[in-house]
């Protein structure tokens, strides 16, 4: 009897590492997650932080702001990070991994990562797929424009851009390069072509700001990321959004990263696992029009029409060499300031 009890105890001990991590009690511990505010924070609280807190007893604390601020924070806290999980743009993720700021994606640590479309986890885990398309004033464009239509001389100076550096700006440079017959590796041509559009009427700091002016026809068009614009279209009858075909829209990804050497690596992996899970990814698609990266997500035809959600759709998108683009950041920022804004 004693021997059986001993075997039972040994078996139980040996099985502990196989138990799901969240079966442990993490009461009194705090997971710090850096992300964007607004709808993204709301969805993450609802579908990720809430369930994680309920399962583990840990507290999830959100740190809101821009992805650049978070990257700065990771660099500054390189030896003693206080943030466990961070949401970054695709152009920041590969360099963050190269600098050793984040942990490489690994399905052994985050099981849901195995369901992410192949090739999407670049630097960090791919959280959502969106494309850079054209938001346009229907008063200016009765029919959905192609990229080349923006170069109509009558529209010079009637564009709006996001602040640079940004995926919108880099994407627009890549488009301009292709309109001129080259690609973004030829920045002289790209900047010269983009400069033909004139200085922007507005460098916008909020979506409402640009959409209100576009709705009134004061701004002709703006290269914008699909998700938020599509979500807002119902509020602005005078605005359309299109994914152009020549070249295709520029693929932009939001990435979720586990910060290297963070205080709570296990909680961070659990958080990311829930974020990549079907429930969260479905909510992102339904409520934000952000394409799911999890291949197991099933959307209705209507929902699927508003998002990028298949490998075929991804293949049709223009993918930039972000490693190259990010390496040009300082130089291109100077050029953007002088050649695009300072015309």
């Amino acid at each position: 009897m004693k021997r059986i009890a001993c075997y039972a105890a040994l078996t139980a001990v040996s099985l502990i590492p196989c138990l799901p991590a969240f079966a442990q009690d993490y009461s009194g511990r705090t997971l710090v997650v850096g992300t964007w505010g607004g709808d993204i924070e709301r969805l993450l609280k609802e579908h990720v932080a809430g369930p994680l807190e309920a399962k583990t007893g840990a507290k999830v604390e959100f740190l809101l702001g821009g992805s650049g601020d978070r990257l700065s924070k990771m660099v500054a806290e390189r030896n003693n990070p206080t943030m466990d999980v961070t949401f970054q743009n695709i152009y920041e993720a590969p360099s963050a991994l190269k600098e050793g700021l984040v942990v490489a994606p690994d399905a052994a640590l985050v099981p849901a990562a195995a369901n992410v479309w192949a090739g999407m986890n670049d630097g960090c885990y791919a959280m959502s797929l969106v494309g850079l398309g054209i938001a346009y004033s229907k008063a200016v464009f009765p029919e959905a424009p192609e990229w080349a239509d923006l170069w109509n001389p009558d529209l010079k100076g009637k564009m709006a851009y996001a602040p640079y550096p940004s995926s919108e700006g880099d994407g627009m440079l890549a488009v301009a390069a292709r309109i001129a017959g080259v690609d973004e590796s030829n920045p002289d041509v790209a900047f010269a072509k983009l400069a033909e559009l004139g200085a922007p009427m507005l460098t916008y700091s909020s979506l409402d700001e640009v959409l209100t002016l576009m709705d009134a026809g004061e701004i002709a068009a703006a290269p914008m990321i699909s998700g938020y614009v599509i979500s807002n279209l119902e509020n602005y009858e005078g605005i359309g959004f299109v994914f152009p075909k020549n070249p295709g829209p520029v693929l932009v990804r939001d990435m979720v990263c586990q910060v290297a050497n963070s205080p709570e690596p296990e909680l961070a992996q659990m958080f990311i696992d829930l974020a990549l899970g079907v429930e969260t990814q479905t909510a992102y698609a339904q409520q934000l029009n952000f394409g799911p990266t999890n291949s197991k997500v099933v959307l209705s035809d209507e929902e699927a029409a508003r998002v990028i959600n298949t490998p075929e759709e991804v293949d049709s998108l223009l993918q930039l060499d972000w490693d190259y683009v990010i390496a040009q950041r300082s130089d291109w920022t100077d050029r953007w300031n002088k050649e695009i804004l300072g015309q």
């Binding site: 650049g68 660099v75 460098t203």
Partner: peptide
């Protein structure tokens, strides 16, 4: 200024927070 009025503070912010050239 909507990005069109260049001041030293906005340049410093751009370099520190966006270009990360501290």
């Amino acid at each position: 200024g909507q990005g069109k009025v260049v001041t030293f503070a906005s340049l410093a912010y751009q370099q520190a927070a966006m270009v990360l050239d501290w």
